[in-house]
């Protein structure tokens, strides 16, 4: 059994928090400059140009991309042949988040109690999803999830007979109602299937897929294409200023579900599509 010191997890996690908040990934930068060429509205193009300019300023390392440095969100694949020594994996991710946010001058946006609303002061605790995988590696994928886009997410427990039409209606309505709030151009993460809890996690997981990549399954590939065209016909445009680019992509994750259920979750992602990953 391979052993990894908790400190390695902490340092890696802290570095991911900072990297993601100061440097937009290449696929996102490409998607934004593509969108700038496609956008037909004047204010929309101007918004996209400012988004690229903002990314350049942030990459200099003095100010994070967005003041909402997000709820720290981790999707971890933990090999069954490796164990963390010194503390639990959850504790190490917690400590790494604290270190990353405090040392990186990132905003601490978590309140310790949802009703009392006292700031935890170090952006902990993170939201953590761990799955076990074969092998002796630990893959940590990180996303700082802003509240502006998370707040306009939806979960619908559809009836199986609602089918693809019901799914389309749910997604389009969600994007239309969200308007400018989630800071478009957005990426639409969709979970289909599972149970109410796993469906929402699928929608978030779908966001980790690289922009420009295609779904493996033809049915979902077509549905993604269809929904992408539909949401871009809404006219919301960059930052909601009106325009032809409302979404950069639509990503779907599906899984088996109960004979009586058709859960659909929609998790929107803002243009500040920050994510980073590391394999230990």
């Amino acid at each position: 059994m391979r052993e990894v010191a908790a400190k390695t997890i902490i340092d890696t996690t802290a570095a991911l928090c900072q990297k993601a908040n100061y440097h937009l990934p290449d696929d996102v930068l490409h998607a934004i400059s593509d969108a700038t060429r496609r956008e037909r509205s004047y204010l929309g193009r101007k918004a996209l140009e400012m988004i690229s300019q903002n990314a350049e300023i942030a990459a200099q390392g003095n100010r994070p991309i967005c003041q909402d440095c997000g709820a720290a969100t981790f999707f971890v694949e933990l090999g069954s042949e490796v164990r963390v020594v010194g503390m639990t994996l959850d504790e190490a991710l917690n400590a790494g988040t604290r270190k990353g946010y405090l040392e990186g001058y990132l905003r601490t946006s978590m309140v310790y109690d949802p009703l009392l609303r006292n700031n935890s002061g170090d952006n902990t605790p993170p939201s953590v999803h761990i799955v076990s995988t074969p092998g002796d590696a630990i893959r940590i994928r990180f996303m700082p999830k802003g509240a502006g886009s998370d707040n306009v997410s939806k979960i619908a427990m559809l009836s199986p007979s609602d089918g693809i039409e019901g799914i389309k209606e749910t997604v389009i309505k969600c994007v239309d109602e969200a308007g400018a709030k989630p800071c478009p151009p957005i990426t639409v993460g969709i979970g289909i299937g599972g149970t109410v809890d796993t469906c929402v996690a699928l929608a978030k997981k779908a966001l980790f897929r690289r922009l420009g990549s295609e779904h493996n399954d033809l049915v979902y590939r077509n549905l993604e294409k269809n929904l992408y065209d539909a949401v871009n016909r809404l006219g919301i445009g960059p930052l909601g200023f009106g325009g032809t680019v409302t979404a950069l992509a639509v990503h779907i994750e599906a899984r088996p579900c109960h004979i009586a259920s058709l859960p659909v979750a929609v998790n929107l992602q803002c243009h500040a599509f920050r994510r980073a990953e590391a394999v230990i």
Binding site: I65, Q67, D68
Partner: peptide, 22 residues
């Protein structure tokens, strides 16, 4: 409507964009 990030030493303010008004 703004909640900025912490300023670095010598900086006036950190990141300072708008939050959702509604």
């Amino acid at each position: 409507y703004v909640g900025p990030t912490q300023a670095r030493p010598g900086q006036i303010i950190g990141s300072a964009g708008p939050t959702t008004s509604s």
